[in-house]
């Protein structure tokens, strides 16, 4: 079973993965994947996704082989298709990250082994979305009915698009907060509203007093034509400790990481800050994803 896009998954599939991840995290489950080999093919940089997949493989009794683009035949001009076809013969499943959107789907179409999308350009990062859902459910005990604020550059962040889709599936209430010009594509928002009857509120000023979950992503300064405007916006959309005075006491702050300066360092030590725990949740969730991909 390939894991390419959150769009391909039904709610029951996601719940199955979240339940399985919970069992792995609690040490209540033994992986059936002993002896299998995972290939990690990251055509662009990654810290958390790559390492947590490799850790998940090892904790599941698997071995992994790692493809390094800088020392591979890519340097000789080998195509993406030829590369993945070759690696397919060395492993039981492949995790692929590639800057081109649709690359994981292309690999899944031409390979017989399961392909897991580790991020394809600005399109999808389904296992990050599963980690986000897992982290929300673990922190709050549920997803349905929660007020989730997505905060930052909602135009370019793939994690936000996928998460908004999944939150619609799980009947959460979503507030989108982004600077002018970095809003989520209105056609995409309309699609979510139509498909899931998702309640979406759009704001262009930092405000999260009603939020149960605040999901932050980086505002990419390089997206702005005017550096002064970039500086002004990133400063206004930087979350400071004082901003949390009006927030709910049990607010949960998540971030896909890496964070640069969009969250003040003093917040890291607060009980609401759960983003490092979220990153650590990547291991049991990806153990569950590997089992889903190889055993479904």
């Amino acid at each position: 079973m390939d894991v390419i896009s959150i769009r391909d998954m039904e709610k029951k599939d996601i719940e199955e993965i979240l339940d399985s991840a919970e069992a792995y995290a609690a040490g209540k489950k033994k992986s059936p994947l002993s002896g299998k080999v995972l290939a990690t093919l990251f055509f662009e940089a990654s810290t958390r996704t790559k390492l947590s997949f490799q850790s998940a493989a090892l904790r599941s009794g698997m071995e992994y082989i790692d493809f390094l683009p800088e020392t591979s035949s890519l340097k000789k001009g080998e195509s993406f298709e030829d590369t993945v076809k070759t690696v397919e013969g060395y492993a039981d499943a492949l995790v692929i990250r590639h800057p081109k959107e649709g690359s994981a789907r292309l690999a899944a179409d031409i390979l017989g082994k399961p392909v897991i999308n580790g991020g394809d350009g600005g399109n999808q990062h389904p296992t990050q979305t599963l980690i986000d859902l897992y982290s929300i459910r673990k922190s709050k005990g549920r997803i349905k009915g929660l007020n989730v604020t997505l905060f930052g550059d909602l135009k370019h962040a793939r994690t936000m698009r996928s998460l908004a889709y999944a939150l619609g599936m799980f009947e959460a209430k979503v507030t989108l907060v982004s600077p002018v010009g970095l809003e989520m594509d209105p056609l995409y928002v309309k699609e979510l509203e139509d498909r899931f009857s998702l309640q979406v509120h759009v704001k262009t000023e930092p405000e999260f007093s009603e939020a149960d979950v605040l999901y932050v992503c980086r505002i990419q300064q390089e997206r702005f034509a005017d550096p002064m405007e970039a500086k002004r916006v990133t400063e206004r959309f930087r979350i400071k400790k004082d901003d949390l005075k009006g927030a709910k006491d049990d607010l949960v702050i998540l971030h896909p990481l890496p964070k640069i300066n969009e969250i003040e360092g003093a917040i890291d030590g607060m009980k609401q800050a759960r983003y490092f725990e979220q990153a650590h949740n990547g291991v049991p969730v990806r153990q569950a994803v590997l089992e889903y991909a190889l055993h479904k």
Partner: peptide, 13 residues
């Protein structure tokens, strides 16, 4: 052709 210049089909798929 896909309208997305970063789509993998722009590479010939």
């Amino acid at each position: 052709r896909c309208a997305n210049p970063n789509c993998i089909t722009a590479e010939g798929a």
